[in-house]
Design a protein around this nucleic acid. Structure first.
Lengths: 336, 336
DNA sequence: TTGTAAGCGTTATCAT
DNA sequence: ATGATAACGCTTACAA
């Protein structure tokens, strides 16, 4: 079955295709009656202007592309919800792609989106090294991009970020204030800026409170990472009094293993996570964690992007840093 | 900055645009040397064939659209991962859109995807009523669609489903075998086929074991729904001995409220959920639940779609029903 | 107010 | 093996 095109409508009414086109694009002069007639018969015929053809000529699509590493952890989904809200309101449709934490796939994703002529991109980087030149090239071609969550200084684009240093400092301080000493930090994936910043916060907290530096263990962001580290600590009989993990998955993985081995949380080991996951509230005991303003991140990114789309050519890249919250729960309460 | 087009490459090498085009589409005759030369200079110039133009003429895009209600619960994300795996392997890119449980947005999503000329669609319906005529129309236009999770009989398309009846029966039987009586079923969202099927399974289990019919409470799929129902039961002092909830969120919501009021799970109330969420393993106590083969659902849907794309015109809609698993955990263990 | 025709960046059908 | 040229479905000067 063939698609109904502008020609079919034109033929049916014995008008030119430009007239039909005009009926669908208010900005031109056209008699009200003809327009109504055209719109009506178009509807009857089931005609919808083909946006592919439209894109080809107008070079814009009213589509926005979002690329995220995954959406299993409700962190990215919530951000996308926030972004979608704003973008829908402005008449944009949102195309989402996931990179699966692979920079090659991320690259393909972005290319696909660009190929589809999205008007702009919202991206959370998977790698801080691999695609930088490519992104710079896109930016040079005046394709609006906003990065969030993970970004790279050398890419001159707008960014929506979180102050990992500050909140890691707060999270660690919280443990210190509760009276815990001998705190171990389980770091995130190696080499990531946010990993480094969370680590810096951890260290700064110790300095600020004139404590000897805390122990640092390279861990990772997955539950298995936390499980592995906990097992190693148990095997080596080096049980810390408290743990500050670089994210919730890792914290929960460690917590589970400790629990299985009979350790009580927080009585034997207190634990604090980072980047509030849906799980934190529901684990036993519930997990103290730093919450990021996910919805706000999405909205802010979208607004920044829209601004950039509207002032294409002469806009100044902005970096917005949003605030979070420390949700104190049972895993780190003060023990008597 | 202007986009580099086929013309730029042609001009640079003093060949016709058709030759350049041929270099990019193996199927035509072209001298190896010219092709290599063209490909190389194209690379240097940063030229990539514009897929929009390509789509316009070829009427295909090697893009597949997936529409889901949400991706906060890891259920849909895992399915998409499975689908993406298969589709990437076959050279397709995957565009994802979320309907937010609104059939209007779902409609817009599908329209956007069709407008972008995706070669096929994988959809989980949000409503079983609202867009049916539209989908039938698309199918008539030979647009390949596979529905999964939620589908409607009257739409003649391929479907990948789960046997809700059977697994609700198993789940309920599990409670019965553990010795629990006075079981209450918290149903899912009203009017959905899967809600009805889970309910039927619950009832059938009672019949099969010659028990008086269990109590049924209309609940919903959200955590708040479960919380509300639990609160009502407590207020009315109608504490059941066991609960079979239509999904995990609802089960967990109810469990939390009961726990807050001092009830022990499963000693006072046993609970079984449905459709394994990531949470189930981590709640306290851990939640017995029916697990759907999410990854398999995604892969199967993708394969069905690819088959359909390749045999466009004459294919027979298939319905594939996949198997699940009951993960027995602490919330429903036998009490002494 | 409406029609004509050029053009968006490709591919595909002819010739050559 | 390569080049002209029509076509894909639409928008938009320009002409009428």
């Amino acid at each position: 079955m063939k698609h109904i095109t502008i020609k079919d409508v034109a033929k049916k009414l014995n008008v030119s295709i430009s007239t039909v086109s005009r009926a669908f694009n208010d900005k031109y002069d056209i008699k009200k009656e003809t327009r109504d007639l055209i719109l009506q018969t178009a509807q009857e015929l089931g005609y919808r202007p083909n946006p592919i053809a439209r894109k080809l000529i107008q070079q814009r699509s009213f589509n926005i592309g979002i690329v995220v590493p995954e959406f299993e952890n409700s962190f990215f989904p919530q951000i996308m919800l926030g972004a979608q809200e704003v973008l829908h309101n402005k008449g944009y449709q949102v195309l989402i792609m996931q990179s699966n934490y692979s920079w090659e796939i991320e690259r393909k994703n972005v290319e696909t989106l660009v190929d589809n002529m999205v008007d702009g991109l919202i991206i959370s980087l998977t790698s801080e090294k691999q695609n930088n030149e490519y992104y710079k090239e896109l930016l040079k071609q005046d394709i609006p991009i906003v990065f969030f969550n993970r970004a790279v200084d050398e890419i001159p684009a707008s960014k929506v970020l979180f102050d990992d240093f500050k909140w890691a400092l707060f999270a660690t301080e919280h443990l210190i204030m509760q009276g815990y000493r001998d705190i171990v930090h389980l770091t995130g994936t190696h080499n990531l800026t946010l990993t480094k910043n969370r680590l810096r916060g951890f260290e700064q907290a110790h300095r600020k409170h004139k404590l000897p530096p805390g122990k640092i263990i390279s861990c990772g962001f997955k539950m298995e990472d936390g499980e592995r580290i906990a097992q190693e600590l148990i095997d080596r009989n080096e049980i810390p009094r408290a743990i500050f993990a670089a994210n919730d998955s890792c914290a929960i993985g460690a917590m589970n293993v400790f629990k299985q081995h009979g350790y009580k949380i927080p009585n034997d080991i207190a634990i604090v996570g980072f980047t509030e996951s849906k799980l934190a509230k529901h684990t036993y005991p519930s997990l103290t964690s730093v919450e990021q303003p996910t919805r706000d991140i999405g909205q802010t990114s979208a607004n920044l992007l829209l601004e950039q789309i509207e002032n294409k050519g002469f806009f100044v890249p902005q970096t917005i840093i949003l605030n979070g919250r420390l949700n104190v729960r049972d895993s780190s309460i003060k023990i008597k």
